[in-house]
């Protein structure tokens, strides 16, 4: 008998990054560290303000909002090859 439930903090084990078909890639040479993509990312997984974004692909769903908001077009989407 199992009662489906979750304890606080356990949703971190749901690796929602598995959902994506495309993933964002950052061209560090173009990045101006403006922080817009970090603010707009719905998952909040693009690293610290003031630094070149470091994406946690475990939770990135590939929505490509970061690509659309980047003022210097430093981010591109790349197809994820799955097994």
């Amino acid at each position: 008998m199992i009662i489906p439930h979750a304890k606080p903090g356990t949703s971190i084990s749901n690796k929602t990054g598995e959902w994506k078909a495309f993933r964002p890639i950052i061209d560090e040479s173009k990045c101006i560290k403006c922080g817009i993509c970090q603010r707009m990312c719905p998952e909040g997984i693009m690293g610290k303000k003031g630094e070149v974004p470091k994406i946690d692909y475990n939770y990135c769903k590939g929505c490509s909002i970061c690509v659309n908001v980047c003022p210097v077009k430093a981010i591109t989407m790349e197809r994820v090859e799955k097994e």
Binding site: I2, P4, H5, A6, K7, P8
Partner: peptide, 17 residues
């Protein structure tokens, strides 16, 4: 002793329930 019921279950878990 907080828990959430009726939460999201991913494809690996759902069918088991």
């Amino acid at each position: 002793n907080p828990v959430s019921l009726g939460v999201y279950a991913n494809p690996t878990h759902y069918q088991t329930f």
